[in-house]
Design a protein around this nucleic acid. Structure first.
Length: 446
RNA sequence: UCCGGAGUAGCUCAAUGGCAGAGCGGGCGGCUGUUAACCGCUAGGUUGUAGGUUCGAGUCCUACCUCCGGAGCCA
């Protein structure tokens, strides 16, 4: 009888049985007449043990010289052994037969340490490493948690275009593309289209790649990143914060349910993630400025004092966000930012137009802004005034202004940066590991 | 764009202005319970590029290139 082909993740269900596993050689320890092979198959990593006297000489010798990442099919008996390494581990395969598919060339990524440039140049191979494997599995779960939560709560996925005629927000950070005899731009947000779609479906979201040609070189920036943007009719800023905290908590809790193993591979302390449940603290921009200046006054280091001190009206920098987030044990909302530092479509606060109905959500542990959103201006005259004030080309926004002519309603929405969320939940030092093939200022390869 | 740092073997790094080295990886050999195994042998170099100083430069000087970290900007 042909043994069943099984996944390493399911090995524990086959104790005592003979099974076949198909995959790649992750690592090998040669002990002479005994060899330990770590085999990975996409679902996990398991140890397979080869004894010289239990195998044909040709098979044993072939395994003995097999390089890392060679592809192979092994058949053997599953046994429980607490010494067996791997993910999930605890079970190993006593090899009775093996077939080598391809003998790999010398594999560049060894079990020792490597520099980031080397790893990024070999990203197409690096994705096989257990740490990257864990991150990308969690990323996939975060994506499905985002979609499932929105789908289950009455939001309709409505795709927005990637090639756009004009800027969504600012003009400096657009990637220009040749569009026949004209120019067009890669999208930096689906929001304006979301506002049109929201008028048809009530609650909508778009979820796709966005592009920013910012010359940013920090651990929080990519030039191509994924963003989910919900937009809701008849939503106030308070409705928005309530929705966001439910949404973000659900994503984090879903990862905790499904990925204890991956989080442990990453060495992620899960205690801060366990605390991500509603309600999240809410502080106004005014309060945040006051808090930062108080922290600056209390700081002993002069450099720290300078980094934290802030004048009302300025936007927060990375050190400000980190310091603010450190004051709380879960994500914190900062609302009512100065109108001048935010986009033209954000609704001014009634009776206090110098601040607007905007809200950012700062992740804990120094991961910074993971969402940014607002109530939108729904009055046509005010929107026209804002467009004129900022010197934007009114013609480009004709269709957007139409939305204020035909049944305009108060509404709100936000964008959540996928890679920053993945980096935060996984505890990564840099967003470049949070996406399979990062696009950055200095990298488009591979 | 600005500030700082680094470019030496396939990788990670040493080397006082005086013979360019180690560990890992590769190759050969040994080892029946390894967890980044261990032991022996072995091959492997235009020291980022171009100039300069010097009897002599990986090391000092100038320019450039590349990457990394941070800032600004942002999700």
């Amino acid at each position: 009888m042909t043994p069943p082909i099984v996944l390493i993740a399911d090995l524990r269900h086959y104790e005592g049985q003979t099974v076949t596993v198909r995959g790649w050689l992750y690592d090998r320890t040669d002990k002479g007449k005994l060899q330990f092979l770590k085999v990975r198959d996409g679902s996990g990593i398991a140890q397979a043990v080869a004894f010289q006297k239990e195998l044909p000489e040709a098979t044993f010798n072939a395994l003995r010289t097999l390089p890392q990442e060679s592809s192979l099919i092994v058949t053997g008996t599953v046994r429980a052994d607490s010494r067996a390494p791997g993910f999930p581990g605890g079970y190993e395969i006593g090899i009775t037969a093996a077939e080598i598919i391809q003998v790999a060339d010398a594999y560049p990524i060894t079990p020792k340490e490597h520099g980031i440039e080397f790893l990024m140049d070999h990203r197409h191979l690096w994705v096989r490493s257990s740490r990257q494997w864990a991150i990308l599995r969690i990323r996939a779960t975060i994506i499905s948690a985002i979609r499932n939560w929105l789908d289950d709560h009455g939001y309709l996925l409505v795709d927005t275009p990637i090639i756009t005629p004009t800027a969504g927000e600012s003009t400096t950070e657009l990637f220009e593309v040749k569009y026949f005899d004209d120019v067009a731009y890669l999208t930096q947000t689906g929001q304006l289209y979301n506002e049109a779609n929201m008028m048809s479906f009530g609650k909508v979201y778009c979820f796709g790649p966005t592009f920013r040609s910012e010359k940013s070189k920090t651990r929080r920036h990519l030039t191509e990143f994924w963003m989910v943007e919900p937009e809701m009719a008849f939503f106030s800023l308070e409705d928005l914060m309530e929705m966001e905290e439910q949404f973000v908590s659900a994503i984090v809790q879903r990862v905790l349910e499904k990925h204890r193993m991956e989080l442990s591979i990453l060495g992620r302390d899960t205690a801060p993630l366990e605390r991500v449940v509603p309600p999240f603290p809410r502080i106004s921009y005014d309060e945040a400025v006051e808090l930062l200046n108080k922290l600056a006054a209390e700081a002993s280091d002069p450099a720290q004092q300078a980094a934290l001190r802030i004048t009302w009206g300025n936007d927060f920098g990375a050190p400000h966000e980190t310091a603010l987030a450190q004051q709380f044990d879960r994500p914190v909302f900062i609302y009512h930012y100065p109108t001048a530092v935010k986009a033209f479509y954000m609704q001014p606060v009634a009776g206090r137009p110098e601040v607007c109905r905007s809200v950012d959500l700062l992740a804990p542990e120094g991961y910074g802004e993971i969402t940014g959103g607002s109530e939108r201006v729904h009055d046509r005259a005010l929107l026209e005034e804002r467009i004129a004030q900022l010197g934007l080309n009114r013609e480009h926004y004709a269709w957007y202004l139409d939305l204020r002519r035909f049944g305009s309603v108060p509404h709100a929405g936000f964008g959540l940066g996928l890679e920053r969320t993945v980096a935060w939940i996984c505890g990564l030092p840099h967003v470049r590991e949070a996406i399979p093939y990062p696009r950055m200022l200095k990298r488009t390869y591979p």
